[in-house]
């Protein structure tokens, strides 16, 4: 039986390492996911995200370290309380929607009556109740993706792991799915989801975790990460544009938008403003927090040795 999560931690990875041949997919990774939180999992392709998620589910076993899920360490016994939507997903095309969902619920140990009720609830919630008795092969791609999501949540999981849940969805279905995820979170489920959509991660997640080349490079709330990785970002508009910045010491232009420049400075922003004022009329000067996108790119850009996928 699954005990209640110890110390309010739904998931704890301690020094987890996974090696495939000569390639270290995940290297000495430690992580604590508080119960009831929404944890965003970001990282470039091939950075070890899917391997980490698979280790949490014990689909693959770590070579070193421990994985504790919902208070249970190093066994699959918590898996019935975990909903999982993998990145590459499919359904039995020849089965009806209700049978597929009932099957997934049963595999999570759900009683058939509760499963029927839960299937009916979620089909109604997603506006798919009319499709219950249709074969999966008759569904559109968007509908199939929603059914796959229902398959992950039908057994009322305490921990929901979603690997790229929004990929390939149109804006309408994306909103439906996002709202459903947030509702699961409001109802107390812990949600761990990986995404390449930084804006979505910023908006939805309580915590963000980034893995790069198998190692943890970011972990914390968005504001903590922003304060740790780039309180030095300055947005400015100056007469003469980027040319007016030529020869200034202690700055690095991050992005030149033509009329607006984003730069990083290693000196005091007030000192920078004073030096800029001497060069021309400063129309805008803002010390900004960097977006998650900027932080991600800064860490994972190829010239920084990132994104090897």
């Amino acid at each position: 039986m699954i005990s209640t999560e110890q110390n309010g931690v739904a998931l704890r990875l301690s020094g987890v390492t996974k090696i495939y041949g000569s390639h270290t997919a995940v290297n000495d990774l430690s992580l604590e996911v508080p119960s009831g939180s929404i944890y965003g999992f970001i990282g470039p392709n091939g950075s070890g995200k899917t391997t980490t998620l698979r280790m949490i589910l014990r689909i693959v076993l770590p070579d070193r370290g421990t994985v504790e899920v919902l208070g249970v360490r190093d066994t699959r016994s918590a898996n019935d309380s975990i909903g999982y939507l993998p990145e590459e997903r499919g359904l039995y095309r020849k089965m009806t929607v209700s049978r597929v969902l009932a099957y997934h619920a049963a595999l999570k140990g759900m009683e058939s009556r509760s499963a029927r009720e839960s299937v009916a609830f979620w089909l109604h919630r997603m506006g798919l109740e009319k499709w219950a008795d249709h074969k999966v092969e008759a569904l559109s791609k968007g509908m199939a993706q929603k059914i796959q999501f229902i398959a992950a949540v039908v057994a009322k999981p305490k921990l929901l792991i979603l690997d790229e849940p929004f990929s390939g969805l149109d804006p309408v279905n994306l909103d439906v799915l996002r709202e459903a995820i947030l509702e699961m979170g409001r109802n107390g489920a812990t949600i761990l989801f990986s995404t390449h959509d930084m804006e979505m991660a910023e908006k939805m997640c309580d915590f963000i975790f980034m893995i790069h080349k198998g190692c943890k490079v970011l972990d914390g709330t968005l504001s903590t990460i922003q304060s740790q990785h780039g309180a030095d970002l300055v947005r400015l508009k100056i007469e003469g544009g980027a040319a007016a910045l030529q020869g200034l010491e202690g700055i690095q232009i991050v992005r030149d938008h033509g009329q607006l420049q984003e730069l990083r400075c290693s000196t005091d922003p007030q000192e920078l403003l004073r030096r800029l004022s001497a060069r021309g009329k400063v129309q805008l000067f803002e010390v900004a927090k960097p977006s998650l996108h900027d932080i991600f790119v800064n860490i994972a850009a190829p010239d920084k040795g990132g994104n090897d996928a």
Binding site: P86, R89, A152
Partner: peptide, 16 residues
């Protein structure tokens, strides 16, 4: 078929 249609991973997340 389960492997080619990417069904297997969800299944083995629920069943050993």
């Amino acid at each position: 078929e389960e492997k080619m249609q990417k069904i297997s991973e969800v299944l083995i997340a629920s069943v050993a």
